[in-house]
């Protein structure tokens, strides 16, 4: 009997060992992928950002470039525009996600599909399309003047860039919120109503806290690409509105100073990481609260 048990134990151990090896084997493509396309480039950015262009010695000069008033201004503008467009996305996306939740599965998945559909086309093309719409003799103004309404001149301004950001990144806000909202058990909400909470109270005390993880990941997915974009500002800003992404792009492409570009990228990364850390902290607190 005891021998049988021993054999069984041994077999079990062997099986587990095999499983571990198999897991490692299965994970290896992912590890190699991460190493080549994430870790190595990050190290390269850090290396270039912290070394001198001329002699390759250690320096903080590339990081300090951010203190240049011109670069500070671009960074500040980027932060402002991306915060504004993240807020607009949030205000638009939350009600949409709520509506989607209230619909039956068939209809809501169709509407989600509609939201994702434009993403089948390249985002550059869609941004160039916006340029054609917003231009002075563009589609929008042609329609407006046909209706004898005053025309709109927002191309090459911050407003056009915010519009471009909201348009491009709105689905990234809707989907995570929607995904969290549909997982909330209806009984929880019904219980709140049973206990006398009105609609607003239910929203503020039940739905909103429970959906925070989705909101947080939505904010990250909109804020980070907005902060670092240079294409949207290029196309819709006419190079008159210059964001920090454009400054970095210029360092690589025009000035041919990789070290300065990498240094500024490191600064930008710090801002991204800081915002994510802040959000995740808030996220945890909220989760803690929602338990009690």
């Amino acid at each position: 009997m005891s021998r049988d048990k021993k054999v069984e134990k041994k077999l079990k151990e062997e099986l587990q060992g095999k499983k571990k090896r198999n897991n490692a084997l299965l994970a290896s493509p992912y590890i190699i992928w991460m190493a080549i396309f994430i870790i190595v480039p990050l190290f390269m950015i850090a290396y270039y950002g912290l070394t001198d262009k001329e002699n390759g010695s250690f320096t903080l000069a590339n990081i300090k470039l951010i203190l240049d008033p011109v670069n500070l201004k671009a960074l500040w503008l980027s932060i402002r525009l991306s915060v504004i467009s993240t807020l607009i996305c949030l205000l638009l996306a939350y009600p949409i996600a709520m509506i989607l939740r209230s619909l039956n599965m068939k209809r809501s998945s169709f509407i989600v599909f509609i939201f994702i559909l434009p993403m089948w086309m390249n985002f550059l093309l869609r941004t160039i399309a916006w340029q054609n719409i917003l231009e002075r003799n563009g589609i929008l103004n042609t329609i407006l003047s046909f209706l004898h309404l005053p025309t709109l001149n927002i191309i090459n301004t911050s407003a056009a860039i915010i519009l471009g950001m909201v348009y491009n990144y709105l689905p990234f806000m809707i989907l995570p919120i929607y995904n969290v909202l549909i997982k909330i058990d209806n009984n929880v909400i019904n219980a709140a109503r049973d206990l006398g909470a009105n609609g607003l109270q239910t929203l503020l005390k039940i739905t909103l806290p429970l959906s925070l993880p989705g909101v947080i990941s939505g904010i990250t997915m909109v804020f980070v690409p907005s902060l670092t974009t240079f294409v949207i500002s290029n196309i819709l800003g006419g190079n008159k509105v210059v964001l920090i992404g454009n400054v970095i792009e210029q360092q690589f492409k025009v000035v041919n100073n990789r070290n300065a570009g990498a240094g500024l990228s490191l600064v930008l990364m710090v801002f991204v990481l800081a915002s994510m850390a802040l959000l995740s902290k808030y996220d945890k607190e909220a989760e803690g609260k929602s338990i009690w």
Binding site: E135, R136, N137, I155, N156, G238, N239, K240
Partner: peptide
Amino acid sequence: YPLVQAYVVDQVRDKMIGGE
């Protein structure tokens, strides 16, 4: 700067053709 509509290189072609 305040007088300029946009700073461009390649886009100038299409914008001028379109009467922008």
